[in-house]
């Protein structure tokens, strides 16, 4: 009897150990696969950072990402550029476009979205339908008419064509995103504010905007990143080198040198993606909250 019990116990014990070992092996395998796929995805970025510290000759000789003889020359020379301006100037230009564009987008899109989400007015359905239609319209289609319009306004070779349309709620995507977010917020708080004596503007500013916070952060982040990365817009409208934003300036270093100084280009590319990365990591929490809560909760 005791003998049988002991055998049964040890069998159960063995089975448990086997299960534990199988679970551990499966976990290790899982992490190896995840890690290697992750590395594969990130490798170009890691290589970019590593290569920016290599000498020009090493870049093509050594496929690994750790530089043999690290040097900051790419950064120093790259920052100086081959023009009369340093890269700082181009960052400043980008900033001058991004700042009014992002603030303008946040303000104008909030107002338009509030109107669509909370008020009844004639032709509302038709107008909202046209917002959705614009959303589906490829950007390229409007390039030529827009160019002609801005030329007639005398805005060529200025930052205005790059931010004014967005600051007037020209980006249907953001309007749509905020409308969806607003629809998920119950209207009771706004009604309470109206009973408290707030007019529509006061309700918007004191009640709606604070509740829209996460969505607005997402809007600003998207606009920031898209503007930072925008190449075609500045290429079309900006012709003077002193007004180039960083996206154009990167191309500049490719054009003007006879033999490409790849380490400079890579170094400046690293600097160019840094602001977007930093901003994203700092506001990641709100960003995810903003894009994920849109249609779900109030």
């Amino acid at each position: 009897m005791t003998q049988t019990q002991t055998t049964a116990l040890s069998a159960a014990h063995l089975a448990q150990r086997r299960q534990r070992r199988a679970a551990r092996i499966s976990m290790v395998l899982r992490y190896i696969i995840l890690f290697s796929v992750g590395l594969l995805m990130l490798y170009p970025l890691i290589w970019l950072v590593g290569a920016s510290f290599k000498t020009n000759s090493e870049i093509f000789a050594n496929p690994g990402f750790i530089p043999k003889d690290p040097t900051a020359e790419g950064y120093i020379k790259g920052w100086e550029t081959s023009t009369a301006y340093t890269f700082g100037r181009f960052f400043w230009n980008s900033f001058l476009i991004i700042l009014p564009k992002t603030i303008g987008t946040a303000i104008s899109c909030t107002m338009v979205a509030y109107g669509f989400a909370r008020f009844e007015f004639p032709f509302k359905k038709l107008l909202f339908g046209s917002v959705i239609a614009i959303l589906l319209l490829p950007n390229v289609v409007t390039r030529i008419p827009q160019y002609l319009l801005f030329r007639d306004l005398g805005w060529l070779d200025s930052f205005l064509p790059l931010w004014v349309p967005s600051a007037l709620a020209g980006d249907a995507f953001f309007v749509f995103m905020l409308v969806q977010f607003l629809r998920a917020i119950p209207g009771d708080m706004e009604e309470a504010a109206r009973v408290d004596g707030a007019n529509s503007w006061q309700t918007l500013i004191f009640i709606v905007v604070p509740m829209l916070g996460p969505a607005l952060i997402s809007v600003c982040l998207f606009q920031f990143m898209w503007t930072m990365n925008d190449f075609l817009g500045p290429l079309i409208y900006i012709s003077s080198v002193d007004k180039y934003p960083v996206s154009l300036a990167l191309k500049l270093s490719i054009d003007t040198t006879e033999a490409f100084e790849w380490n400079r280009i890579l170094a400046m590319s690293v600097l160019t993606i840094l602001p977007a990365l930093i901003v994203f990591f700092f506001s990641q929490k709100y960003f995810i909250e903003g894009i994920s809560t849109g249609g779900v909760k109030g």
């Binding site: 009771d188 309470a192 009973v195 916070g213």
Partner: peptide, 13 residues
């Protein structure tokens, strides 16, 4: 007038 709502409708922020 003043009104008390079913779900309180307090300003969350």
């Amino acid at each position: 007038i003043a009104m008390v709502f079913q779900n309180y409708a307090l300003y969350p922020h």
